[in-house]
């Protein structure tokens, strides 16, 4: 395998005098993914101002999205994006753990199971059949789970996607050999520090900031909407208390309150219990019915291709 040969040696890491601090070998870093959108590893490439500096401090030995150079470990630091969601992931994560001295899970998928963990409340076979016409080719597990459910994890970077600031903090901490300073507080704290007017108290918008781990910079309230919990529950998050308030303040049914938690970190406790206690997810309840699945399809066979070539007249901007 791996016929993709290393390109001419000029590209090989470590040979250009960039080894940090008196010739100590640079830590070998890998970036790999399981089930995910690639957004978290893209955050590494989004460290535009630091990217090249970073490569002077770390030897990036595996980062398929960015480099054809491949290794299969061992790694001093391995960043893993994505949730465990196929039988192959189960096998790979065990191997990766063995290869990694420090394993860092990055993002909501890796740390909580991700948005795809909503299927954990549903009938997986029904989901599979609804999306893919020949589901027997689709290999996936009934549940999408965080990596920490399978192997030990050394550090977590939360978020959908992760925060570049927290990523840099973790990387510099690893270089220096200290513990990263990642605050364990509510989004509200950052929101208030930034002087953002609370969207919940002032506008009645449901916001999960109080039970959600900080790190994003309170972007949702800053953008005039409620936090949707993509950094996951913070330590001792009183999700049940917040759910009771949402219901008691009279504007939301139990089902609607449950949906608030059924987002990108739904499967992380205590959001998971809040959703279950409030009756599970709407989508899961619905997918239980076979009629719905049969109603799926691609809209095929409604009009011929030729019919589509008819020039439409009087089109305005939107074709309306």
């Amino acid at each position: 395998m791996a016929a993709m040969a290393q390109k001419a040696d000029r590209g090989r890491p470590g040979e250009h005098g960039h080894a940090a601090r008196g010739g100590t070998p640079r830590p070998r870093v890998g970036v790999v993914k399981l089930a995910s959108c690639d957004g978290c590893q893209l955050t590494i490439l989004d460290l535009e101002d630091h990217l090249l500096e970073l490569s002077e401090h770390f030897e990036i030995v595996d980062f398929p999205e960015a480099s054809s150079a491949r290794s299969n470990g061992p790694y001093d630091v391995l960043f893993v994006e994505g949730s465990v969601s196929t039988p192959d992931h189960l096998r790979r994560i065990g191997e990766l753990r063995k290869q990694a001295r420090v394993l860092v899970t990055i993002g909501a998928c890796a740390t909580s199971g991700g948005i795809q963990a909503l299927r954990n409340w549903a009938d997986h076979d029904a989901y599979r059949a609804a999306v893919y016409p020949t589901p027997e080719y689709v290999e996936s597990l009934a549940r999408s789970t965080p990596i920490s459910e399978h192997v030990s994890v050394d550090f977590e970077l939360r978020g959908c996607p992760i925060s570049p600031e927290q990523l840099i903090e973790l990387l510099t901490a690893l270089v220096t050999g200290r513990r990263p300073q990642l605050r364990d507080e509510a989004v509200c704290m950052e929101c208030k520090r930034r002087g953002i007017v609370c969207v919940m108290s002032a506008q009645g918008i449901a916001c999960l900031g109080q039970v959600t781990q900080t790190g994003c910079g309170a972007i949702c309230p800053r953008m005039g909407r409620g936090c949707y919990g993509c950094f996951g529950p913070r330590e001792q998050a009183n999700a049940a208390g917040l759910a009771r308030w949402f219901q008691a303040s009279g504007e939301r049914s139990a089902e609607e309150v449950g949906q608030l938690f059924a987002g990108f970190t739904a499967y992380a406790e205590p959001f998971r219990s809040a959703i279950t206690d409030l009756g599970g997810t709407r989508g899961a309840r619905r997918s239980g019915g076979g009629g719905f699945i049969a109603a799926g399809g691609t809209g095929a066979g409604r009009a011929s291709y030729l019919a589509g070539t008819r020039r439409m007249e009087g089109i305005d901007d939107d074709g309306r």
Binding site: C188, N238, W245
Partner: peptide
């Protein structure tokens, strides 16, 4: 404590 979310809003406000 069952009602309080310990979000810290009170202290920062």
């Amino acid at each position: 404590a069952e009602r309080c979310i310990t979000c810290g809003n009170c202290t920062l406000a």
